[in-house]
């Protein structure tokens, strides 16, 4: 799996006196199984970039090719199906459905895919156990801590076996210890399931855990480095 970003540009309010170039002419390639951090200060365009990668926002110009398929050319409807089957999303505020239990949240996207209840349940339990919440499967998000909720969100993102996972500042609402725990889990799943992870952050402590860091400033890549993993397990 490869993601090719070609000359991707997003300009907000293009026809006004103050157009904002949130992402400007970005070209970059991300390969199978990578664990990439997009790092940059607030307002640098990380969310905008990830949204376009995830097909929930459209670029002003440029293309996003996933395994050669230009997703920016897809119709809205096709894009929804594409997202459902190929992309896992993790949000800063966890964004679980509050009325569903942890297990039901993880099953949800699989059910949208039309998988059998038995298959959904098995996969949900497998993933919840993987993120260390096998015993909390029947709790609603309100009964879980922030860190636990974000682990459920990781399980939800991975449940439909996506080609890659996009996480926009997944640890921004978590404390240091919880952040570490979550990154451990993300990293383990990245290795175990071979799923590509792309996450944004402006927290320098998180950067250390990424194997590749794309530094983003004012909508442009200023640095793209591969670093040795400093995690010891």
């Amino acid at each position: 799996m490869t993601i090719q970003i070609e000359r991707l540009t997003k300009i907000y309010n293009p026809d006004t006196d103050f157009p904002i170039t949130a992402v400007g002419d970005v070209t970059v390639e991300i390969g199978q199984g990578e664990f990439v951090a997009v790092m940059g200060p607030s307002g640098s365009g990380k969310t905008t970039l990830l949204n376009m990668l995830g097909g929930i926002d459209r670029p002003t110009s440029g293309r996003v090719l996933i395994d050669g398929e230009d997703i920016t050319a897809l119709e809205d409807k096709e894009l929804i199906g594409f997202r459902r089957d190929n992309i896992g999303f993790i949000f800063q505020d966890f964004s679980l459905l509050p009325v569903l239990t942890a297990k039901e949240n993880v099953e949800f996207v699989m059910q949208l895919q039309g998988r059998s209840q038995r298959e959904c349940e098995a996969r949900a339990m497998e993933l919840l156990t993987e993120v260390g919440l096998g015993d909390r499967a029947d709790n609603v998000p309100g009964k879980l801590s922030g860190g636990q909720q974000q682990r459920v969100a990781v399980a939800r993102a991975l449940a439909p076996k996506p080609r890659f996972v996009l996480a926009d500042e997944p640890t921004a609402n978590l404390d240091a210890a919880t952040t570490r725990g979550l990154l451990d889990i993300m990293q383990r799943l990245n290795e175990k399931e071979g799923t590509t992870f792309i996450f944004s952050t402006h927290d320098p402590r998180v950067i250390g855990r990424a194997r590749r860091v794309i530094v983003f400033e004012d909508g442009k890549i200023t640095e793209d480095r591969v670093q040795g993993e400093d995690r010891t397990e």
């Binding site: 929804i80 949000f91 949208l112």
Partner: peptide, 16 residues
């Protein structure tokens, strides 16, 4: 609103 944004992002169609 945000919750619906999440639902649509993760692949829930407009019809659903």
């Amino acid at each position: 609103t945000r919750e619906f944004g999440v639902l649509i992002s993760v692949g829930m169609t407009g019809k659903k």
